[in-house]
């Protein structure tokens, strides 16, 4: 069964109150949603609390999910986005970034792999993802790659324009084109988002 079909089955079971299906849904999507929350909040502890909040909302509002509006993962991201914006508003704080995804330096990548982590398996998997991402980023024109890397570590588009000395409109164009190319590349190469 492919991912979206499996997700739909899980959602149907969650609506019926199936806790095991809810756990499975969490296992399938929590990591990537969490990474998004870490990027936005710049704080793992806050991101963990928001992840919990987002999934509680998913549990409560599972009956409102409509497949015609998008895949389950997109729906979960929408909830996480809403939760994150609400938190940012209430904290009246700016988002902060974290570490680079597109680290090209092999030695630094190895050192990062060696960082303490919840488990070597997860860290090793992260290393695999990182290598895949670097390969995909390598296929972008340098300008597009640069703005995406800066964006990934927490810069806004205005801040990227200022720091790279390019017009804001140009940065926005590079950003859109770069994200589109990157998405296409990752889809073409079967990048695993989990």
């Amino acid at each position: 069964m492919d991912g979206p079909k499996h997700d739909q089955e899980l959602i149907d079971r969650v609506v019926a109150g199936d806790l095991e299906a809810f756990e499975a849904l969490y296992d399938r999507h929590a990591d990537v949603v969490f990474r998004y929350l870490v990027r936005v909040m710049g704080d793992r502890q806050i991101a963990e609390n928001l992840l919990q909040e987002a999934f509680v909302r998913a549990w409560r509002h599972a009956p409102t999910y409509r497949a015609e509006r998008g895949q389950v993962r997109s729906w979960l991201f929408g909830i996480a986005h809403h939760v994150a914006l609400h938190e940012l508003r209430s904290q009246r704080r700016r988002p902060q970034g974290i570490q680079l995804a597109g680290d090209r330096d092999a030695q630094a990548a190895v050192e990062r792999v060696r960082e303490p982590a919840p488990g070597p398996a997860e860290a090793a998997w992260a290393a695999v993802r990182r290598a895949d991402l670097v390969r995909a980023l390598d296929q972008l024109p340098p300008n597009q790659r640069q703005v995406i890397e800066l964006y990934a570590i927490g810069y806004t588009q205005s801040e990227i324009a200022t720091s790279t000395d390019h017009p804001l409109g140009t940065v926005k164009t590079w950003m859109r084109r770069g994200l589109l190319h990157l998405r296409e590349t990752l889809e073409r190469e079967g990048f695993d988002a989990t």
């Binding site: 969490f34 998004y36 974290i98 570490q99 919840p118 964006y151 990934a152």
Partner: peptide, 12 residues
């Protein structure tokens, strides 16, 4: 949103 999740590297 999904792309941001993919680009962000952190442990689970």
């Amino acid at each position: 949103l999904e792309m941001i999740g993919l680009l962000t590297v952190t442990v689970p």
